[in-house]
């Protein structure tokens, strides 16, 4: 490279410069070098573990010795369908559905106001107002609800001050959603899930509402639609991709959580808790592995449905 006409760089012969030349001449090698560390890390550590786990779900556990029998079988998957386990799956899926619907209803006014009306400082404030709860400690948020729902806590106190304790008791007397107190009822679990995952619904919903121009709504009103009709016929379809993106978070996160139902709720198990107990105290890794496949399959099905509905086209 000492050609005078082409090069005139006096500092062109250091080791780094020569290494740079070599990489420049082999762009594929350069790409491989860039990709290798992250690909190896994620490929070996993460995907490797994931497949190892998946493989274990095809083994079974010997009922007498409690040891794992390393032979391919679908026996463990059949075990998922015994009534007790099926209950767990249905309970978790129902809860995830309720949390998702609740979050969508609660998130809409926040997202819509932030997207359509908030400007300048207010917009930043709304954004931070959602970001801070999203990123603040999961455990602290759960802990806060343990404080709120406690028998001597603030919620019971409010009902007492308002002389509405009778209403709360009537509500808790309703079978299924009620219980001895809010902190050991499905309603309590629902509230905490809703609280913890709500910001995950607001952000994508707001992003999709930002893209709905105000003139569409004005056009709809101009053409004679009443506000509710405009909402149903124009706003909702246009906001749907964001709602679905948000629902993927709320649904998936609820399916896999095992801490919230353990701290607030009845003693009946959710999928996450089942996985935790089977791999821990029971030592039944194959069944735990099979259980983890359930949320993956449900999520896969959910994404496939969303895609078929064309929900990703606008994303």
């Amino acid at each position: 490279m000492s050609n005078v006409a082409i090069t005139s760089q006096p500092r062109g012969d250091g080791i780094l410069a020569r290494l740079s030349d070599a990489l420049w001449r082999r762009p594929t090698l350069f790409l491989v070098l860039l990709l290798a560390p992250p690909a190896l890390w994620l490929g070996i550590i993460y995907l490797g573990s994931l497949f190892a786990l998946l493989a274990q779900s095809f083994f079974s556990i010997d009922e007498f010795s409690g040891l794992i029998n390393y032979e391919f079988t679908l026996k463990t998957y059949r075990e998922l369908f015994i009534p007790a386990n099926l209950d767990i799956i249905i309970r978790t899926t129902l809860m995830a559905t309720c949390v998702t619907l609740g979050a969508a209803v609660l998130a809409f006014p926040i997202a819509y106001y932030a997207a359509r009306y908030a400007r300048g400082k207010w917009k930043a404030l709304f954004y931070l107002g959602v970001m801070l709860p999203l990123w603040s400690s999961y455990l602290v948020k759960v802990y806060a609800w343990k404080l709120i729902l406690a028998k001597e806590g603030i919620l019971n106190w409010i009902f007492e001050v308002l002389h509405l304790t009778w209403a709360l008791e009537a509500y808790l007397a309703i079978p299924l959603i009620g219980g001895n107190s809010l902190s050991v009822s499905y309603s309590g679990t629902f509230l905490v899930f809703l609280y913890v995952w709500l910001p995950f619904m607001v952000l994508p919903m707001q992003a999709s509402l930002e893209r709905v121009s105000a003139s569409y709504l004005e056009a709809s009103a101009d053409l004679g639609a009443k506000p509710l009709q405009t909402f149903r016929l124009v706003l909702l379809p246009l906001a749907l991709p964001g709602i679905i993106a948000g629902s993927i978070f709320t649904f998936s996160l609820t399916l896999g959580d095992y801490i919230i139902p353990q701290i607030v709720g009845s003693s009946r198990l959710f999928i996450g808790q089942a996985v935790y107990t089977h791999q821990g105290t029971a030592g039944n890794i194959p069944l735990a592995a099979a259980f983890t496949v359930v949320p993956v399959v449900i999520m896969g099905f959910y994404l496939w449905m969303a895609k078929r509905q064309g929900a990703f086209d606008a994303l």
Binding site: M1, N3, A5, I6, T7, S8, Q9, G12, S20, D21, W24, R25
Partner: peptide, 16 residues
């Protein structure tokens, strides 16, 4: 060729 010398394999930072 740039001023008579072949440019093949010469990176941009070595071309005048």
């Amino acid at each position: 060729e740039i001023f008579g010398s072949p440019a093949g394999g010469v990176p941009p930072y070595r071309r005048n």
